[in-house]
Design a protein around this nucleic acid. Structure first.
Lengths: 192, 192
DNA sequence: CGTCTATTTGAATGTACTCAAAAGCGGTGG
DNA sequence: CCACCGCTTTTGAGTACATTCAAATAGACG
């Protein structure tokens, strides 16, 4: 865990030495390689993941077998199938590593113990979730209101650091268009 | 408030007489007529609304002036611009009554007092929000994975009681298609 | 019954899609 | 260092689905 400590996950929260040790023991550091799938649809979802480095994505496979990327997660993001994580139901999403990554895994149960042990963590996490919620809503709005080209431009603006990490076809599946369409959109934007 | 009491909003939570009175005093009953807009984009969002009867919708007006419906709320649903409600920022959504309604309005501050006064309310509400989150995700998935016809069928299945309350063009703006397209989809489904 | 609004229908257009082929890129082994 | 292979992206041509704009029909309400 080098210089990085669990304290850095919960920026701004004061930890005593004991609390820090307790908290640290609840997380598991996991190294994941590009292509690794750490969650499959149909499984239960006991854990969520804090992304320290690299990049992961959640995606959904529809009835016709097509993949749809829901979220990319890079440094300092959390990732899981939160619908299933919250409700205790089975995953409908898959989580795949798209760029070699180091993540910190924590179970729902540990999370709840942590809430009780360290004041501020529950609020910290609630705010994270509220922002997550807001980003989902923003996404619905852009799906409804924007053309392929606009969605692409808006993605670049919102996540300037992500694009270099990922394949074109992953981004296309996030934007809801085909890789061919994305390629054409880029070509058009290039000579503008 | 006839037979309905605030207790019915928080089904399954035990209220003492005092708690019930305190809770009730925090809510304001509001009657809204079809066409009334109870929240405008650009305003702050101090309150959320529990829908007792009737139907409301949140919608977004995009750069080109088009309306996009985000959510319909009928009996026993909550409605607000939650992104703004949570963060304290300004609304980007509008809330309009689409069918004469009775709602119970409560401010963020009162909500927090209520959390402290009545055990179980905070958890109750957290679960509501988790479901809301799940429904948003489901919506993103269907936007990405479904054709107009499939989205319409899936809407009917998920919200069988809502369709009769609302205008075609509101439903179209929810599905992300034009009223004309929705009309054609219905015509096709009618003789199948 | 007439007026206003909502929905349906029609025809032309456009945007993104599919399928297929070509070009580009990156890594591996000779 | 270069040639090859597999994977990714680009380009092309034809197609499909939803859109726009306009006109006609249907409903609701006074």
């Amino acid at each position: 865990m080098q210089n990085f400590t669990i304290k850095d996950i919960f920026k701004g929260i004061a930890f005593s030495q004991i609390q820090l040790e307790n908290a640290t023991s609840k997380f598991e550091e996991v190294s994941v390689k590009r292509g690794d799938v750490i969650l499959n649809a149909g499984q239960s979802v006991p854990s969520q993941y804090y992304v320290y480095s690299g990049c992961l994505r959640t995606y959904f496979i529809d009835a016709s077998g097509k993949e749809h990327t829901i979220q990319f997660a890079v440094n300092d993001w959390w990732i899981s199938d939160y619908t299933a994580f919250f409700t205790g139901g089975l995953a409908i999403l898959n989580i795949e590593c798209v760029q070699d990554a180091v993540v910190y895994k924590i179970s729902k149960e540990s999370m709840e113990v942590l809430y009780a042990e360290v004041p501020g963590v529950e609020t910290f996490f609630r705010i994270k979730m509220e922002r997550f919620f807001a980003s989902f809503q923003k996404r619905i709005l852009s799906d409804l209101a924007m053309s392929a080209k606009e969605k692409y431009k808006s993605f670049l603006k919102a996540y300037p650091n992500i694009e270099t990490n990922i394949k074109n076809y992953h981004l296309a599946s996030y934007l809801g268009i085909t890789p061919e369409s994305l390629s054409r959109v880029r070509a058009e934007l290039a000579h503008e």
